[in-house]
Computed example of a mutant assay.
Amino acid sequence: MAIEVITVQDLNEFRSLLLNDLKELIQKPLQTKQWLKSNEVRRLLNISPGTLQNLRINGTLTHTRVGGIIYYNHSDIDKVLNGNKVVTTPTLFK
């Protein structure tokens, strides 16, 4: 069994490479799934199954059914969230 000696320079080089890899990972935009199942949408929006069903029934949230599984397009969820933004104006208290 051969013994390898690790120097301070080796550790500094490793540290530098590791930091560069971490910087690259942080700078990359997160990839989101295009199609989400019902349980993923409920977790994302923190809503109950009944609320999700109501959003489907009243046409607020479009969906696609394949067999017995309902899928939601992530961009459609973003559109609903962005379309329902509420802009509040600050009020001054006297």
Results as ranks from 00 to 15, higher is better:
residue 71 Y to S: 11
residue 80 V to T: 06
residue 27 Q to L: 09
residue 39 N to F: 03
residue 15 R to H: 07
residue 51 T to G: 12
residue 38 S to E: 02
residue 70 I to M: 06
residue 77 I to C: 04
residue 73 N to R: 11
residue 62 T to A: 14
residue 26 I to V: 13
residue 30 L to A: 08
residue 72 Y to E: 11
residue 80 V to C: 00
residue 36 L to D: 00
residue 35 W to L: 06
residue 41 V to L: 04
residue 83 G to A: 08
residue 75 S to M: 10
residue 28 K to E: 10
residue 36 L to T: 00
residue 25 L to H: 04
residue 45 L to C: 00
residue 24 E to N: 07
residue 18 L to D: 08
residue 72 Y to D: 10
residue 59 G to C: 09
residue 45 L to N: 07
residue 22 L to S: 03
residue 68 G to H: 00
residue 54 N to S: 12
residue 44 L to S: 03
residue 60 T to G: 04
residue 30 L to T: 08
residue 37 K to V: 15
residue 36 L to H: 05
residue 60 T to S: 12
residue 37 K to Q: 12
residue 62 T to D: 09
residue 14 F to S: 03
residue 83 G to L: 06
residue 44 L to D: 07
residue 75 S to E: 15
residue 77 I to K: 02
residue 82 N to D: 02
residue 66 V to A: 10
residue 36 L to I: 01
residue 23 K to Y: 01
residue 80 V to E: 01
residue 81 L to V: 08
residue 17 L to N: 11
residue 35 W to I: 02
residue 14 F to N: 06
residue 63 H to Y: 15
residue 45 L to P: 04
residue 59 G to W: 15
residue 24 E to V: 03
residue 76 D to E: 15
residue 13 E to M: 11
residue 40 E to Y: 09
residue 42 R to D: 00
residue 37 K to H: 12
residue 41 V to I: 00
residue 19 L to W: 07
residue 83 G to T: 10
residue 68 G to T: 11
residue 74 H to N: 12
residue 65 R to D: 10
residue 70 I to Q: 04
residue 42 R to M: 15
residue 22 L to C: 09
residue 79 K to E: 12
residue 80 V to K: 03
residue 50 G to R: 00
residue 36 L to W: 01
residue 22 L to P: 00
residue 26 I to G: 08
residue 67 G to A: 06
residue 46 N to G: 06
residue 14 F to R: 04
residue 20 N to S: 10
residue 57 I to N: 14
residue 66 V to W: 06
residue 23 K to M: 10
residue 78 D to Y: 09
residue 67 G to S: 10
residue 16 S to L: 13
residue 49 P to L: 08
residue 46 N to W: 05
residue 73 N to I: 00
residue 54 N to M: 13
residue 46 N to R: 07
residue 42 R to S: 05
residue 43 R to A: 13
residue 52 L to S: 06
residue 56 R to E: 15
residue 22 L to Q: 05
residue 23 K to W: 03
residue 69 I to H: 10
residue 51 T to R: 14
residue 42 R to L: 06
residue 72 Y to K: 05
residue 41 V to D: 03
residue 70 I to A: 11
residue 37 K to I: 15
residue 34 Q to P: 02
residue 24 E to M: 07
residue 52 L to V: 01
residue 70 I to P: 01
residue 65 R to H: 09
residue 32 T to K: 05
residue 44 L to H: 02
residue 45 L to R: 08
residue 74 H to Y: 15
residue 83 G to I: 12
residue 65 R to C: 02
residue 32 T to S: 05
residue 21 D to R: 15
residue 24 E to W: 01
residue 74 H to K: 00
residue 39 N to T: 14
residue 25 L to M: 06
residue 34 Q to L: 02
residue 77 I to A: 08
residue 73 N to Y: 02
residue 20 N to L: 04
residue 38 S to R: 00
residue 60 T to E: 11
residue 31 Q to N: 03
residue 38 S to I: 07
residue 34 Q to K: 08
residue 59 G to M: 12
residue 28 K to Q: 14
residue 23 K to C: 08
residue 19 L to S: 07
residue 57 I to K: 14
residue 59 G to R: 14
residue 31 Q to E: 07
